[in-house]
Design a protein around this nucleic acid. Structure first.
Length: 427
RNA sequence: GGAGAGAUGGCCGAGUCGGUCGAAGGCGCUCGCCUGCUAAGCGAGUAGGGGGUUAUAAACUCCCUCGAGGGUUCGAAUCCCUCUCUCUCCGCCA
């Protein structure tokens, strides 16, 4: 959410940003509601002041044993007026609030202007596409041939877009998440947390998934709880309604969690393999930082996520999302796209964003520069470090051999219980 | 799931029959004074949000907030209702 006063004073900036994002929000309605709200506040507060003053007088009279009936009678009608104005004010604030909730974040000035994902510029690449003297297979064929990725049984147990891993594929998933957590907690200095994966609607509103994106979430109706679509939600909400002391910042957290997404708008997209599932594991990086440092922190966070692919020695590129492709809450986003030789293209494996104070304002996460200073909003950032299912896919495709087996990358060997490669087996 | 108790400022804790309570007292913290050092002592300050005025400064002023939301009342931290959370006991359970 943006700051109400800031929007009021910078309505043209907001309008321009909305156009760049191709977002539809009615700012003329905003102007109406905002000015009506302020007029009403002045009126009703004036009346409330009178009520408070006269109530004090009534108290005095009663104590002195004097009659106060005429004042009480006058206050009765005043009370009705206040009630009516308060109700109108509440209606206006509701509508204004809904409107504010629908306004996406303002992209940072460094974000490239563009209509859609075809306009995202490449920032850098690392490594090279591996050369094969055979036709590399996509990971789903590799997994099926080796017997370790069982989509059929997963569909039986649950439904499509779920997977059952067998044996060394299951082990590989666990190896990867351990490698990632060890790297981020060790070398990169993040604090590991393990949060709840069912959350309430306040948490989802804080990070921006609600109210706008309810369709993307799995909901437990009976308890009014949701399965998290990303660890960003519980981890960012750790500090909801809290005020940091200035020297408590920055905070760097990493968390492994399963993630659940309904993928409501994605029918027919990435239907094969591990790319787009309803349930997947992810290691997430989340930062709470001083506003002045947040863009430096975004560069570092992205580099920390990249470090996983470097450790695995897998080629990738980093792109900067343009104004038309950037997420609702983000001010700037880098996507890391991993090379999948069998699939024959790059695929997003991490999305690293600076939300500036957009989430912090919704979730009310603040800090004090000095003990006596007014609280101000922190900046929040997060990024995948990495999506684990897609990393499994990347390992499969990049480390496949002519005989259909998959070599275990050097960095994963300590985690694989002595296994050197994944070979075909029937389960 | 059943029965009961509770939720007040950074923390602890008072709040009488609803009446000047945003809230006694203590601790902590900040600033100043004092004292060879330390400790102690003295004085002052110490919630958040939203309006008005203003330069989106300082200062001043008003309104709201005593878990959340609603109600009763001229007036609610105090009374009533709903919800959430915490604690105790019973049941169930990895």
């Amino acid at each position: 959410m943006l700051d109400l006063r800031w929007v009021r004073d910078n309505i043209d900036v907001v309008q321009e940003a909305l156009e760049k994002r191709a977002a539809k929000v009615d700012l003329s309605r905003f102007k109406e509601l905002d000015s009506e709200r302020r007029t009403l506040i002045v009126k009703v507060e004036h009346l409330k002041n009178e009520r408070n003053v006269v109530s004090g007088e009534i108290a005095k009279l009663k104590k002195a044993g004097a009659p106060a009936d005429d004042k009480i009678e006058a206050m009765r009608t005043l009370g009705d007026d206040i009630k009516e104005l308060d109700e109108r004010l509440a209606d206006i604030e509701d509508e204004l609030n809904r409107l504010m909730m629908d306004i996406p974040n303002i992209p940072h000035e460094s974000v490239p202007v563009g209509e859609d994902e075809t306009c995202n510029p490449e920032i850098r690449t690392w490594g090279e596409q591996p050369k094969f003297d055979f036709e590399p297979k996509p990971h789903w064929d590799l997994g099926l041939d080796l017997g370790v990725l069982d989509f059929e049984r997963a569909a039986k147990i649950t439904r499509a877009r779920f997977v059952l891993y067998w044996d060394l594929a299951a082990r590989l998933e666990r190896a990867l998440l351990n490698l990632m957590l060890d790297l981020h907690t060790g070398t990169h200095g993040y604090t590991e947390v393990f949060p709840p994966i069912l959350v309430n609607d306040t948490s989802l509103t804080g990070t921006g998934q609600l109210p706008k994106f309810a369709d993307d979430l799995f909901k437990i109706e009976d308890d009014n709880l949701y399965l998290i679509p990303t660890a960003e939600v519980p981890v960012t909400n750790i500090h909801r309604d809290e005020i940091f002391a200035g020297d408590d910042l920055p905070r760097h957290y990493c968390a492994y969690t399963p993630c659940f997404r309904r993928e409501a708008g994605a029918y027919g997209k990435d239907t094969r393999g591990l790319i787009r599932h309803h349930q997947f594991n992810k290691v997430e990086l989340v930062k709470f930082v001083h506003p002045e440092t947040s863009y430096d922190e975004l560069e570092k966070l992205t580099a920390n996520a990249e470090a996983v692919l470097r450790a695995l020695n897998i080629h990738y590129r980093v792109i900067s999302l343009c104004t038309g492709d950037i997420g609702f809450s983000a001010a700037k986003t880098y996507d890391i796209e991993v090379w999948l030789p069998g699939f024959g293209g790059y695929k997003e494996i991490s999305s690293c964003s600076n939300f500036e104070d957009f989430q912090a304002r919704r979730a009310n996460i603040r800090f004090r520069e000095h003990p006596k200073a007014k609280p101000q909003f922190v900046h929040t950032l997060n990024g995948s470090g990495l999506a684990i299912g897609r990393t499994v896919a990347a390992v499969f495709e990049n480390y496949q051999q002519a005989d259909g087996t998959i070599l275990i990358p050097e960095a994963l060997k300590p985690y694989m219980g002595g296994a050197e490669r994944i070979v075909a087996k029937k389960f």
